[in-house]
Write a protein that binds this DNA or RNA. Sequence first.
DNA 1: TAAAAGTCTTAAACTAGTTCATTTTTTTTC
DNA 2: GAAAAAAAATGAACTAGTTTAAGACTTTTA
Lengths: 197, 197
Amino acid sequence: MNFKESHHLILNNISRFIHLTELEKQKYVSLLTEIRVKKKDFLMQAGEITKYEYFITKGCLKVYTLDEDGAPHISMFAIEDYWTGDISSFMTKEPSRYYIKATEHSELLGISRTNYDVLFQEIPKFERFYRILYQRSLISYIRRSNHGISLTAEERYIIFKKKYPQIINRITQKDLAAYIGITPEFMSKIISKVNRM
Amino acid sequence: MNFKESHHLILNNISRFIHLTELEKQKYVSLLTEIRVKKKDFLMQAGEITKYEYFITKGCLKVYTLDEDGAPHISMFAIEDYWTGDISSFMTKEPSRYYIKATEHSELLGISRTNYDVLFQEIPKFERFYRILYQRSLISYIRRSNHGISLTAEERYIIFKKKYPQIINRITQKDLAAYIGITPEFMSKIISKVNRM
DNA sequence: TAAAAGTCTTAAACTAGTTCATTTTTTTTC
DNA sequence: GAAAAAAAATGAACTAGTTTAAGACTTTTA
């Protein structure tokens, strides 16, 4: 059996948690859709019902909401080997409040809501895969929500820099500010202060 | 087959996502441990390795960390029909950074780490149950982490009050402040302001 | 490759939230 | 049910982070 590079990447990601036979691998990749999105283009926009859960094989994207004043708040940056999407809209089939925009030319594999359900019927082992995937995401979001209410912006910046060195060089300071939850002006002050230390 | 009241509660919670046969129900409840904890007593403390994932059948508990200054930051309040614990320490078997303290006399059902693994082997359907449970928790923590960095304390208070009316009357204003992420003094100001509106 | 658009920096005036100290009110305990 | 302990309220002085504005630097686009 011969898989393309993107399929190798996603199968390798999955193999960290569950073991699949060659036949299951074939079945699984047959349920995926390939998606390309150019820099600055949207993978999805607020108001739409999320059609896919995504796995990034190349590039970088930002997932964000806009508040009443039109200010962006970035929920996550997704690069190669990351999963992303709006799990809430994907599950409830209600319109999303999120935008997903490529900050670099990106390539993704998507699984549609229909195929997501088929997947569980045909290869129940995937319940385990997603159980573990969501469990791990949950751990990091519990931590992030605690940091948001208990740490200063400077502390959150230092943690982000340490935890995601491979991301920080690929994003603008403005987007980093929208992720940390402060204005770009204050982000600029923090960075020059931390660098001076 | 005759189950006690607490077993009825937990089985009813589980039946929202998966269907169990009578035999599976019996098997499942045999893996649970009953726990009682008096008001102001700890269910667990920072430094311990989390032994159980908990389901609350009666009472109210707060899950919190202490920062370097000794100030508490509450991650969640758990009441009847809620699941709680420290999923990170439970999975990694590393010492927890959380305290769980009963704010009322409470009764819980716990599943140990060993039995959690046995459960998946014996009733693989539980992978699906936990997949859905974690997926839903994830959705609410993603939202909470966004609120923490994008909303004012007053907005977070109004949202909490609307979303958890059954909890707000059971907790102190001080604990609410530790959940919202502000000082008790500022919480007091916000509440009197919002009530005046 | 010049012009336009977007990003980053700096600074002054402002606001949301903290700190500290004191008093009042409510809850707990014996 | 009185005394002690904890929670809530209030206010003044403070700090982290915002707003607005303007200039310098960098990237994108025609």
